[in-house]
Design a protein around this nucleic acid. Structure first.
Lengths: 121, 121
DNA sequence: AACTGTAGGGATAAAATTGTCCCTGCATGA
DNA sequence: TCATGCAGGGACAATTTTATCCCTACAGTT
């Protein structure tokens, strides 16, 4: 992150590693988009207009630090940048699609449940 | 959560639903433990001593609200409580084990990478 | 000269999450 | 009576994450 963490993370179980890497709000979306060939920062932002460029940059930085993506800066002006999944990053794709799929499948159940809760409040 | 959220969540993609349900720091551990038959609050706390009872309760509450677990309060004294996975909750198990597995597999890669980063800092 | 597109980031604020400390209530056993 | 085990939660603080606002730099175009 931007500053030094004060609470050490216990990265001794697999789950904590996984969530450390893809737990951010936009990270799975970014990985997915990059996998689909959307590589440039501007394009990524257009694809996720609810996220600010600021946050996307932070997340892209972390994905880079974690070895999930590579950043290529072309020495041209105006500047051009592209992100690519590393081989390591590609191993995440089945997992991400599993998570996406589970969520989609149970979205109706979940939303129905939330409606019921609201009635009781 | 404890108070009303101010930023509405866009739960329109599967991933956001999934992370909403299992994204909390201790939720996957709790689900895993409960699946393994560790059902009582005290036991769960002993299994995850780094989490406070307070936080575990909060997460258990949310898992209940999301329909992942059921809470059974036995009318005895001293009080006895047990949590069970719902059928819905059980559908999470393959996903959780997938996440756990991915993380375990790449833990060495990840930790190696973090060490390298530290040298450069 | 002013404006556009492209990429990036500082400063700060808001929101969300997690942690700390301490209290309740009840029954049992010492 | 006092301490212990069990379940739970209020009040508050610290930490982490995300959002808002505004700035830089550069080249080409109008």
């Amino acid at each position: 992150m931007m500053y030094e963490k004060k609470i050490p993370k216990d990265l001794n179980c697999g789950m904590s590693i996984t969530l450390e890497i893809i737990g951010g709000k936009w990270k799975p979306c970014l990985i997915d988009s990059i996998a689909k060939g959307i590589r440039r920062p501007g394009e990524l932002h257009k694809n996720h207009p609810d996220a600010t460029k600021r946050v996307l940059n932070l997340h892209l930085k972390e994905l880079g630090d974690h070895g999930v993506i590579t950043k290529i800066i072309y020495p041209v002006l105006p500047s051009k940048v592209e992100y690519f999944l590393t081989d390591f990053g590609k191993t995440l794709l089945p997992l991400i699609s599993h998570m996406e799929q589970w969520g989609s499948e149970y979205m109706p159940v979940f939303n129905e449940l939330q409606k019921k809760k609201l009635k009781h409040v």
